[in-house]
């Protein structure tokens, strides 16, 4: 992707069958990631379309055997930060995310609706939101997320931690007789997290 000289005149010769199959298989994850960034499935589909076109055109720079999802996420994220972010910021609500009042399977203490959760998630700073999605929802390692975002793993770790604290606050989970659970609660210096 970063090596234009490797780009063939037409992408087709370097597009292998497994690459195409891989793209197809990643579409649901690309959409879910994109919708988590911009808050709208309609905008997400535009982003995914752009990502697929770029991926196809740059197929020659994808190293077979490496992580296709991470490569695609990097393309999608760069596209979002380059052209789409301003639209995303205008989305005030969870347009198109079709979250009926589905209760999240939680534990007995903490109940929440998916829609409420999505509102809170979209209220987070973008960099905390994307870190939470990659690490907390998709199970990527801090190192994998760091590669996609082009930052240090420690930065991802800190964004996840701050994002979790902020979500807990927005969702009212932090208020239940836990004075220590403020903005900084899940920090490593917190007595709660110090084990």
């Amino acid at each position: 992707m970063s090596n234009p000289s490797a780009r063939p005149d037409t992408a087709a010769p370097s597009v292998t069958n497994s690459f195409r199959t891989g793209l197809l298989a990643e579409i649901p994850h690309l959409r879910a990631f994109a919708a988590s960034l911009c808050g709208s499935l309609t905008l997400a589909d535009d982003l995914v379309q752009e990502t697929l076109l770029k991926a196809w055109a740059n197929a020659g720079s994808f190293m077979a055997g490496t992580n296709l999802r991470a490569w695609l996420f990097t393309i999608l994220r760069n596209s979002y930060y380059t052209h789409h972010r301003r639209y995303g910021r205008e989305i005030a609500d969870t347009d198109g995310l079709h979250a009926a009042q589905v209760a999240v399977q939680a534990n007995q203490e903490f109940h929440m609706d998916l829609l409420d959760f999505r509102r809170a998630l979209l209220a987070l700073p973008l960099e905390q939101r994307e870190a939470l999605i990659m690490v907390g929802a998709m199970g990527l390692s801090h190192e994998e997320a760091a590669l996609i975002c082009d930052v240090a793993a420690g930065t991802i770790k800190s964004r996840v931690s701050r994002g979790r604290a902020r979500l807990a606050g927005l969702l009212g989970l932090a208020s239940c007789d836990l004075p220590e659970m403020g903005e900084t609660a899940p920090h490593r210096t917190s007595p709660l997290a110090a084990r």
Binding site: V102, V104, Q105, A106, N107, E109, F110, M112, L114, F117, L121, L132, I133, G136, A137, R164, L167, A168, L171, L173
Partner: peptide, 8 residues
């Protein structure tokens, strides 16, 4: 709870 909600 937050982890489950993220995954959901």
């Amino acid at each position: 709870t937050i982890g489950r909600a993220l995954q959901a």
